[in-house]
Design a protein around this nucleic acid. Structure first.
Length: 306
DNA sequence: ATCCAGGCCATAA
DNA sequence: TTATGGCCTGGA
């Protein structure tokens, strides 16, 4: 348990004692898709989280939530950034498990795994299949603009541009496939509608997934069309905080083969078992550092690996 | 033009 | 149980 310190300075809220912390990498590493850099010198980020427009920035090793915000929002942000998690200890434990992961951590320390809204994460990562980050971002934004609610910003800073909440399951359940296609969701459109209908009808208790054990939770999610191994792990890791989840995309596949399998072709199942064995309940964090490192550092070197 | 980018599903053996 | 092809989309 981290002993985060919360203090109000002016209208802003400052969260300190959360070192190591890298806001940019945390928001832009591919786990969340509704943040954009704003403000002077792109030093701040604006995003929509659980129906609220947030503006945050980093000062030294602190997270600043720009205000004024009420106490609920403050607590929501603490939970969203999982500030109760002692990331320094996690990074050290991973370094001990394997210095190779330590290299990835040193490349980009302070990536916090967020606790996003499960429904939004579910739709987002269904969309992510066979898709690129810019297109995922656009699809999610289009869904919000066309089906979400405008969020009144009052007198807050950059009020000139309007933001929209992510639409509830009931709203997307009532949307036509054609409307979902207009959000560039492609062949995933029917998957989104079906998921929305099951959740809106109460047929599936999405928010209860967090109370299950990891294997059972994953099994349940994978019963949805459009949710396979990787997408299920993304939802479990980035929304529910199942840190033993280990999403394996092409980049993780490449770096895992490169580091542990002599760059040889290995079934994903083998990589998955290996990761769970080696990293245990820190697999999700290991994945995030390795993924980021693979994409941004080793890109050209391991691209050829399948 | 052709390829491919942070998968999944249906089908086939 | 593992291996293929197709799929929406849009940028390189």
């Amino acid at each position: 348990m981290a002993d985060v310190v919360v203090e109000v300075s002016g209208s802003d809220v400052r969260f300190s004692k959360i070192s190591p912390f890298n806001l940019k990498d945390t928001l832009m590493c591919g786990q969340a898709f509704r943040w954009t850099s704003t403000g002077c010198d792109n030093c701040a980020y604006t995003g929509v989280v659980k129906g609220k427009v947030l503006r945050v920035r980093q000062e030294h090793e602190c997270l600043i939530l720009e205000g004024p915000v009420d106490e609920d929002t403050r607590n929501m942000v603490m939970d969203y950034f999982a500030l109760d998690v002692d990331l320094g200890e996690i990074e050290n434990r991973l370094r001990e498990i394997d210095p190779a992961v330590g290299v990835a951590i040193d490349f980009s320390p302070g990536i916090r795994l967020l606790r996003q809204d499960p429904w939004e994460a579910m739709v987002t990562f269904i969309i992510s299949a066979r898709n690129s980050i810019p297109l995922i971002r656009r699809s999610v934004e289009l869904l919000a603009e066309k089906h979400g609610d405008p969020i009144p910003q009052g007198h807050r800073g950059d009020a000139c541009d309007l933001h929209f909440s992510f639409p509830d399951p009931g709203v997307l359940a009532d949307a036509d496939i054609e409307e979902l296609l207009e959000c560039r969701t492609g062949f995933k459109a029917p998957y989104i509608k079906e998921a929305a209908m099951r959740i809106a009808s109460g047929d599936f208790d999405l928010y209860g997934v967090g109370d299950l054990e990891y294997p059972e939770a994953k099994k349940r999610l994978m019963e949805f069309k459009g949710i396979g191994n990787k997408v299920a792990d993304c939802i479990l890791l980035f929304a529910f905080g199942f840190y033993q989840a280990f999403p394996i995309d092409v980049w993780v596949t490449r770096i895992m083969r490169y580091l542990y399998f002599d760059s040889k072709k290995v079934p994903l199942r083998v990589i998955s078992e290996f990761a769970h064995e080696k990293f245990g309940d820190l697999a999700g964090y290991a994945q995030q550092y390795l993924f980021y490192y693979a994409r941004n550092m080793l890109g050209a070197e391991i691209r050829g690996l399948e």
